[in-house]
């Protein structure tokens, strides 16, 4: 393992990489030779809740997808709990954007959550009572147990998002990566999701979420990672989430008044 890490250019002795649930070094991802993410380093703190923040098209989702190996980077390494990503799949759970799937797909809520158990079930394993019970428990945690038998298309947007979260919970992971979990959801869903994420943190898990609502950053997260193609700031919220870093990230796109308002709220 040490050898592998060394071959990939990550110094295995670097303690921040060893201890970090997610360490990214020199990551560049491009679509048609236009970098969406350029030379980004990221070290997520164990047990933290980190918000990835940046304007539209800043590469937030791309960063997440590269961290998961869904898109192939031009350069860079990803280590998860100090080891290469491929060896740590079982410890990562992903909650994609809701718009990424066809909601008319013939499947029920419970079937979607059972997908979270696919590693455990393997190719031929039968779905047993204990799997159903576990899936129902995960639905219960997001307040969706009454909907288990519904076809997924019958749910509201917020409910669909909670089903995606339940599917990730079923994986029993240590690191949760979420892509805009609060985008376009109702207030009840937002409350339910943040309660679950905080309970994950309580249990010692690490949460990283792409987040778009600057007003709730300080309430929901303890760490931020500001990106606009390049990394612009990272660290605990009270250090890295300031008027200066926001200005640097959003440039002219965020009205100065808005930044002042947020900075004011930060005290």
């Amino acid at each position: 393992m040490v050898e592998l890490a060394a071959k990939q250019g990550v110094r295995p002795t670097d303690p921040s990489v060893q201890a970090s649930p997610l360490a990214i070094r020199g990551l560049t991802v491009s679509y048609n030779q236009k970098p969406a993410v350029f030379s980004v380093d990221m070290t997520v703190q164990l047990g933290s809740m980190t918000a990835i923040i940046g304007p539209n098209g800043a590469g937030k989702s791309t960063l997440l997808k590269a961290a998961l190996g869904i898109v192939r980077p031009v350069s860079g390494q990803v280590t998860v709990f100090g080891r290469p990503l491929e060896k740590q799949r079982a410890r990562i759970a992903y909650v994609p954007q809701r718009a990424s799937v066809d909601w008319d797909f013939p499947t029920r809520v419970i079937d979607v959550v059972l997908m979270g158990l696919s590693r455990e079930l393997g190719l031929l394993g039968r779905v047993r009572m204990r799997h159903i019970a576990k899936a129902m428990d995960c639905l219960n945690r997001v307040g969706m147990h009454d909907f288990a038998d519904r076809q997924i298309g019958q749910l509201s947007g917020g409910q669909q998002q909670r089903v995606f979260l339940a599917r990730a919970l079923a994986q029993d992971a240590d690191l949760y990566l979420l892509d805009e979990p609060f985008a376009g959801v109702d207030a009840a869903t937002e409350k339910a999701i943040i309660a679950v994420l905080k309970s994950l943190k309580q249990a010692g898990k690490t949460v990283v979420a792409v987040h778009h609502d600057l007003a709730t950053v300080t309430d929901y997260f303890d760490h931020v990672f500001l990106i606009n193609t390049r990394k612009l700031a990272a660290g605990p919220v009270d250090e890295a989430f300031t008027a200066e870093t926001l200005q640097a990230t959003y440039g002219g796109r965020l009205a100065t008044a808005q930044i002042d308002q947020i900075a004011g709220a930060l005290g």
Partner: peptide
């Protein structure tokens, strides 16, 4: 034999990729 991974990929290819399919 392949029905589970094929259904996962059909429903949500990115999630399937993230879980190592």
């Amino acid at each position: 034999i392949l029905r589970r991974p094929m259904l996962m990929v059909a429903f949500d290819a990115e999630y399937a990729a993230a879980t190592g399919v």
